[in-house]
Measured scan of single mutants.
Amino acid sequence: SEYETMLTEIMSMGYERERVVAALRASYNNPHRAVEYLLTGIPG
């Protein structure tokens, strides 16, 4: 799925699956924002 592709691409940058899933959830599946959250911390 498109979601799995995003997940895999972000994980390939060296992040753990659960952190990527949390970041995508926080960003409403916006991959650019999710990466930003992984770099700066997930808000909330």
Rank of each mutant, 00 (worst) to 15 (best):
V20M: 02
A26L: 11
G44S: 12
R17W: 08
A26H: 08
A26I: 09
A34E: 01
I42Y: 11
E4Q: 10
Y37R: 04
M11E: 05
I42F: 14
H32M: 13
R25E: 14
H32W: 12
E2K: 11
P31I: 12
M11Q: 05
E2I: 11
R33M: 15
A22P: 01
T5E: 12
A23N: 00
L38Q: 00
E2G: 10
R33L: 15
G44Q: 13
V21G: 03
Y15L: 02
T8F: 14
E36H: 12
G44F: 11
P31C: 08
L24F: 03
T5M: 14
G41W: 12
V21K: 08
H32T: 14
A22L: 09
T40Y: 15
V20P: 00
I42W: 12
M11L: 06
A23T: 02
V35M: 13
E4F: 11
V20F: 03
A23D: 01
E18K: 07
N30I: 07
T40N: 15
R25H: 11
H32P: 06
V35I: 15
R33N: 07
I42D: 10
R17G: 03
G41D: 09
L7H: 01
V21E: 14
S12G: 11
S27C: 07
Y15D: 01
Y15S: 02
R33A: 10
T8Y: 13
L38D: 00
E16L: 06
E9P: 01
R19Y: 10
P43K: 08
E2D: 14
E16D: 13
E16A: 09
A26V: 09
L39D: 07
N29Y: 11
I10E: 00
L7E: 01
P43T: 09
G14I: 03
V20R: 00
T40F: 13
M6G: 02
Y28E: 15
E18D: 14
L39S: 09
L7Y: 02
N30A: 04
L24P: 00
L38W: 02
T8E: 14
R33G: 06
L39F: 06
M6T: 06
L7P: 00
E16V: 07
I10R: 00
E16Q: 07
T5S: 13
L7F: 04
A22H: 08
E9F: 14
R25D: 09
P31G: 05
L24Q: 00
Y3M: 06
M13K: 06
E16N: 08
G44P: 14
L7W: 03
L39K: 15
S1C: 11
I42N: 10
S12K: 14
S12H: 08
R17V: 06
E9Q: 14
N30F: 03
Y28G: 15
E36D: 08
A34L: 04
S12C: 06
E9A: 14
L39V: 10
R25L: 14
M11Y: 03
L39H: 08
T40G: 11
R19G: 05
R33P: 02
E4G: 06
N29E: 05
R33Q: 13
R19Q: 15
H32L: 15
